[in-house]
């Protein structure tokens, strides 16, 4: 319950930070990291396909509803739902290749968003715009994803190592 509430708060925080801070940073290249996407990816990695899909849908829907929104409602819900499901499924099927899944998701997400927009006849979803923007979006997202993964793996590994200490690190004492 607490974890669920923390997750909800975290989601809200991520979305707010995305629109209030990240999108306003004058970053070179025109693009910027997409915290919401990365949040969905991380959640999906942790929760699997179903959880990923649900979280993706929820965060996408939140993104659709979030005030500065001028796109068709459900667009990001659809995209993030798919992303969450795929990443979660990949994590379930091939736990060792989560990095690849993340990279693919990060690279595909903008294309999917643009694709959905294009299908809906959004005049702003232009291939040329996407081509200009896509590299920077991918680079920022990958960099941020790498950072997140490093942090997460560090913490989790440390916890694991600490758990291992009593058994492996002090054999003498154990024998004594």
């Amino acid at each position: 319950m607490i974890r669920a509430m923390a997750a909800v708060l975290l989601v809200g925080l991520i979305m707010v930070v995305q629109v209030t801070v990240v999108n306003r940073l004058p970053l070179p290249g025109g693009g910027g990291p997409d915290l919401v996407l990365l949040g969905v990816v991380v959640f999906a990695l942790a929760r699997g396909a179903v959880g990923g899909a649900a979280i993706g849908f929820a965060m996408g829907f939140g993104t659709d509803v979030l005030p500065p929104a001028a796109h068709v409602m459900g667009q990001y819900a659809l995209v993030f739902c798919l992303v969450g499901f795929m990443v979660g499924r990949a994590a379930e099927r091939a736990p060792g290749s989560s990095a690849v899944a993340v990279i693919v998701a990060v690279m595909l997400a903008p294309v999917m968003s643009a694709g959905v927009g294009g299908l809906l006849g959004d005049p702003r979803a232009d291939w040329r715009t996407l081509a200009a923007l896509w590299p920077s979006l991918v680079m920022y997202n990958l960099a941020l994803a790498a950072l997140i993964f490093w942090v997460v793996s560090r913490f989790s590994r440390e916890r694991r190592r600490r758990a291992a200490v009593p058994t492996g690190a002090y054999p003498v004492r154990r024998h004594v």
Binding site: A49, V50, A53, A54, D64, V72, A77, L78, F85
Partner: peptide, 21 residues
């Protein structure tokens, strides 16, 4: 189940999109 849920969610999303569009 996962597929079901995904399909459901996607369907909802599409409905949302359709309606809104």
């Amino acid at each position: 189940r996962a597929r079901l849920i995904l399909g459901l969610l996607l369907a909802v999303a599409l409905v949302l999109i359709t309606v809104d569009h």
